[in-house]
């Protein structure tokens, strides 16, 4: 069974972004980029399935600018067998990414596609669900546990939901999106980083896949959120209670 893992190149999660002065977006010049943390979890899960002999091949895919090759090399250093870059400078929105991934899935015939539940830049939380819809496959989003039964042609997934958790049984092929507690991703070792440089990485263009990636949403402007006015330090519990009662009036 083959597993596809789409991996997105995003701003490093430790960095607090700054909105550009002309309000056209956020400033990404010279900012550290990394693999979306949820996608590291997706790669890890796929690798564990391979190490357990459930999966035979793990293919990482990224859609975006040339520099996404670095993200794919990271995925391969972690253990993915090969990489595919769908290269474009066009702003990609989730529906376009889902259509590109569908075109690749139709060529690759995976049984499972594991995505992150959300990318930490655009926070859309859409791509996996959209891909599932386009493929006509079942989906289990926000996964905290994944058990594949190849013989039965099913995958059982525990999901983190608002009130607690739930477990779904899906027929394969299927889509899974990862939540934070699915696993703890490994680190790439230096020898594996070197080996990853020799692993195959295909580069294709959206046109070659016959996909129109024109954005559907126009970003009119990007602004700073309203700042919070600076607060005060209180000296002790008594002062805190006094302020909450008499100044903020949030407790009786």
């Amino acid at each position: 069974m083959k597993i596809l893992v789409p991996v997105k190149r995003v701003i490093d999660y430790n960095i607090k972004v700054r909105v550009k002065a002309d309000n056209t977006g956020v400033d990404l010049a010279n900012v550290k980029m990394a693999m979306n943390p949820f996608d590291e979890i997706a790669i890890e899960e796929a690798l564990r399935l391979k190490e357990a002999d459930v999966a035979s091949e793990v293919v990482a895919i990224s859609c975006g600018v040339t520099a996404c090759q670095e993200t794919l090399r990271t995925a391969m250093a972690l253990g993915a067998d090969r990489g595919i870059l769908v290269e474009t400078d066009v702003e990609l929105q989730p529906l376009a990414v889902a259509k590109l991934l569908k075109a690749i899935a139709l060529n690759e015939s995976p049984q499972l596609i594991i995505l992150g539940k959300q990318a930490i830049d655009d926070d859309a939380n859409q791509t996996g669900q959209m891909l599932a819809a386009l493929m006509g496959w079942p989906q289990a989003t926000f996964a905290s546990k994944v058990v594949v039964d190849v013989a039965a042609g099913s995958v059982t997934v525990t999901r983190e939901v608002d009130g607690g958790s739930e477990t779904l049984a899906l027929t394969l092929p299927a889509i899974v999106t990862t939540d934070l507690r699915l696993n703890e991703p490994r680190y790439a070792t230096l020898p594996n980083i070197m080996k990853a440089k020799k692993k195959p990485l295909d580069v294709i263009k959206p046109e070659a896949l016959g996909v129109d990636v024109t954005p559907r949403l126009t970003t009119l402007k990007v602004t700073d959120p309203a700042p919070r006015s600076a607060g005060v330090k209180v000296a002790n519990v008594a002062e805190l209670i006094h302020k909450l009662k008499n100044e903020a009036k949030v407790i009786a």
Partner: peptide, 23 residues
Amino acid sequence: ATSNGKNTLPRVAALLDVAQISD
């Protein structure tokens, strides 16, 4: 934008071939 809404609406949008606007 609850776990149900987030789970279902992107699927609806893709089937309608439209974008989904989150949150």
